[in-house]
Simulated assay, not measured.
Amino acid sequence: MKAKKFIMIIICLSLNTCMFAQKEYTEKINRLGSRGQKEGFWIDSTKHRVQETYYRDGVLSSIFKEYNQNGRLVILGEYKNGQKGGTWFYFGNTGHLIMAFKDFAKNTYTINNERDGKKYIPDYKCYSLSYYPNGNIKDEGILLWSEGESPESDFSVEYGEWKYYDNTGKLTKTKLFK
């Protein structure tokens, strides 16, 4: 009986400590630094999404998470000095992986603008993979995009060799984009 009381006291003390730590933690959300810049952990929300980000001296740095209106994780990635880095994962409403982007870098490839035929160099590139609901790769290749856009936008451009697979994982075709 004494052992149960002792365990209950330890649990209660732990809970009080946890609740106090949680209060301390929540007071440090959405802080501004001495120069008015975003600093530390930030939560931004709208009716349809909640984003969790981290800032260092007003620049996006570290883990990025976005949740849908049901609280389900839909995007997980990382910022390095304000730029996407590492691997970014995009999930469907049931939690399955839809696409991933990795190997983010400054782009040096020149492409033709479809509208006017002029050559230009998009600002960024990454490697893209999209997936079937069963987890098999649907397609993969390099995406290019310009400042102010992102690889998942309609304005990103496929470049180089792209591979396309059926839902069993069998390669069905390759296509070369220039």
Rank of each mutant, 00 (worst) to 15 (best):
M99A: 15
M19Y: 01
N167K: 06
M1N: 03
F20I: 03
N113G: 10
I43G: 13
Y109H: 07
W145F: 14
Q83G: 00
L13C: 12
V157R: 05
F41G: 11
M8G: 05
Q37N: 05
T110D: 03
I111V: 12
F89M: 05
R35W: 07
K173P: 10
S153I: 08
F104L: 06
G169L: 03
Y67K: 10
P122D: 09
N112A: 15
I9P: 04
R35V: 08
N112T: 15
G33N: 03
R49S: 15
T46P: 05
I29T: 06
S156V: 02
K125N: 06
D154K: 12
Y67L: 12
G169C: 02
D166K: 01
F41C: 10
F177N: 14
H96M: 03
S130Y: 06
K106V: 11
V157G: 00
E27T: 01
Y90M: 15
D44T: 11
Y67H: 12
D57A: 13
M19L: 01
N113H: 10
S14I: 11
S150Q: 14
V50E: 10
Q37H: 02
T174H: 02
Y164Q: 05
Y25D: 08
E78Y: 06
L76D: 12
G117E: 04
H48L: 12
S45G: 14
Q37K: 03
C18Q: 00
M99P: 10
G71T: 02
E149Q: 14
T174G: 01
S153W: 06
K119V: 10
L73R: 12
Q69F: 08
T168M: 13
P122S: 11
L15Q: 07
Y67E: 07
E78G: 01
Y132L: 07
K80H: 06
E78R: 04
N16S: 12
N93A: 14
D44Q: 08
I142D: 00
K138P: 03
Y159L: 04
G40P: 09
K119Q: 12
F91G: 14
